[in-house]
Design a protein around this nucleic acid. Structure first.
Length: 486
RNA sequence: GGGUCGCUAGCUCAAUGGUAGAGCUGCGGACUUUUAAUCCGUAGGUUCGGGGUUCGAGCCCCCGGCGACCCA
């Protein structure tokens, strides 16, 4: 650091800037590469260019210096700085000042070296931005903690880190394209909410000084997107952050990106199909295939129609005992106890069934994306009753690689039943359940104006990236939350 | 919340309880065709923090911090 500080200062002494406002580039590294795809060895083009990039390797041989410059898009080109090309003063300055990590401007002729490497033979060079800190060894991966703490360094040295960032963009772009093609509108709903709802989760709480008002960072956009459907925006979606005041692990982040989309006159089966097609289109957009390969070499087939299992049937099969919404609470609890599942004493029957499902069934999914169909009513206050099965609701969860990837509903639009359900939730909240929903009178008022039959889906963007790339959630998020050092 | 593993030089990693080391990086020097250049020389440490056991602790024990993985 100190030595590089001196170099920065020495530049000023030589009348040069360490951080000029501009350097006179005429083209980009990738443009030069594509313009001269196959030159013969030791060839001179006569073409003069001005390019800039970060020095990632240096090889100095006395009166001829080589440096590999890399641009932000990953394209690289060799710079050659020779005594004959730039003169003694500029060459000495190069050898004295330039370090790996610096951004450098090179002006000169596009040539190939005697080894055939496409190069720019400098007639002049400038510092574009001096790096004061050394880069880590480029050939070894950073440890995982440094990767997330100093993602900027990770991005510089690890091509895959840059690739993941681009994959994320491509995935989200694909989703937008798919939904836009179906006539969906992308809208933005409040992140700061006066009531928290739309999911069962503990919220972050904050305060508006101006309004002297307690506010919640949203745990879900659901109730606002439904208001939009009531208002006649009948196909809407939002891709944005949700916040949940809970722990972080390899599949959970306190802030995470979520897609929610709602379509009037659709039901949960229609939404399941759309969801599958969205994910398959994203896989094609990113990997040009519906088979995705993870870093461990495993191949995951996302193609075709995905299997469905009934929640209650799967639990019944696993227990060799028929479980239905009518199964007594005590019976379910004894099965949970027998399986060693610890459940809150206040847990409702539906919660016990879901716990049994997660304990016995999920691991049998063997990597194939699977829809789990028809959930208990008492854990799903925003979903409409099943059209034939009493005690169930029209809800599915999509699992990919054992992770909950998405959930879809036939939405509950009956304002009377919705009021009952939310009243029950508010009672749970009053009894101390920090995850219970609040009774949102304005949302109920919206439903009372008449909401068309609607299907809705929530899909975790970070989880989707995990499913496509096989990485942990903190690798899919560019700057995940990390606890402060020390 | 529980368990396992990890934290040592700028980076990646070594080191039976007995003088803290290597490679790369850095610094000085040589070299006009190198590709992680090479060669010669050289510097570099609060072993995550605190406490304990011991003649002696990077290593063993306890508490704490941060991270990864597994489980709930």
């Amino acid at each position: 650091m100190r030595i590089r500080r001196d170099k920065r200062d020495r530049l000023a002494g030589a009348g040069l800037e360490a951080y000029p406002v501009q350097v006179p580039i005429t083209t980009t590294i990738s443009a030069v590469r594509t313009s001269y795809p196959e030159l013969p060895i030791d060839h001179q083009t006569g073409a003069l260019v001005g390019i800039a990039g970060r020095v990632i390797f240096q090889r100095n041989t006395g009166k001829l210096c080589f440096a590999t410059l890399r641009a932000g898009d990953g394209s690289e080109i060799q710079a050659m700085v020779s005594l004959a090309g730039v003169g003694e003063a500029a060459l000495d300055l190069w050898k004295d000042i330039v370090d790996i990590g610096d951004h450098i401007f090179i002006h000169g002729e596009v040539i190939t070296s005697k080894r055939g490497e496409l190069s720019v033979l400098a007639d002049s060079w400038l510092m574009a931005a001096k790096a004061l800190r050394p880069l880590p060894v480029v050939h070894k991966p950073l440890n995982e903690e440094s990767r997330v703490r100093q993602r900027y360094v990770d991005l510089i040295v690890r091509p895959q880190a840059r690739q993941v960032a681009r994959t994320r963009v491509a995935t989200v772009a694909s989703i937008r394209k798919s939904l836009d093609a179906r006539g969906y509108l992308e809208i933005e709903t409040p992140m700061l909410q006066t009531m928290h709802g739309g999911a069962t989760a503990r919220p972050f709480v904050t305060t508006s000084n101006a309004f002297d008002l307690q506010l919640f960072l949203r745990i879900a956009p659901e109730l606002f997107l439904k208001r939009a459907v009531v208002g006649g925006l009948e196909r809407v979606y939002e891709i944005n952050r949700n916040f949940r005041n809970e722990g972080a692990d390899s599949t959970h982040s306190p802030e995470f990106a979520m897609l929610e989309f709602y379509e009037a006159y659709a039901d949960y089966r229609v939404m399941a199909t759309i969801t599958r097609e969205l994910i398959q289109a994203a896989a094609r957009a990113v990997f040009d295939s519906e088979q995705v390969t993870h870093p461990d070499g495993s191949v995951h087939d996302l193609s075709g129609v995905w299997p469905e299992v009934s929640l209650y049937e799967a639990v019944s099969t696993a227990l060799s005992f028929e479980v239905t919404p009518m199964t007594p609470h005590d019976k379910l609890r004894s099965y949970c106890d027998a399986a060693g599942i610890s459940v809150e004493p206040t847990a409702v029957s539906g919660k016990l069934v879901e716990e049994l499902f997660e304990h016995y069934v999920i691991e049998s999914f063997d990597g194939r994306p699977t829809f789990v169909m028809d959930f208990p009513v008492d854990t799903s206050p925003l979903v409409r009753d099943h059209r034939t099965d009493i005690g169930k609701v029209e809800k599915w969860d999509l699992y990919i690689n054992g992770n909950e990837q998405a959930t879809g509903y036939s939405e509950l639009v009956d304002p009377v039943i919705q009021r009952q359900r939310l009243t029950e939730q508010a009672a749970l909240g009053a009894r101390g359940d920090a995850e219970a929903m609040q009774l949102d009178e304005d949302f109920l008022r919206a439903l009372e104006h008449g909401m068309p039959p609607t299907g809705g889906v929530g899909l975790g963007i970070d989880r989707l990236l995990m499913a496509l790339t096989g990485l942990g959630i903190r690798e899919t998020i560019l700057f995940p939350l990390v606890k402060p050092e020390r």
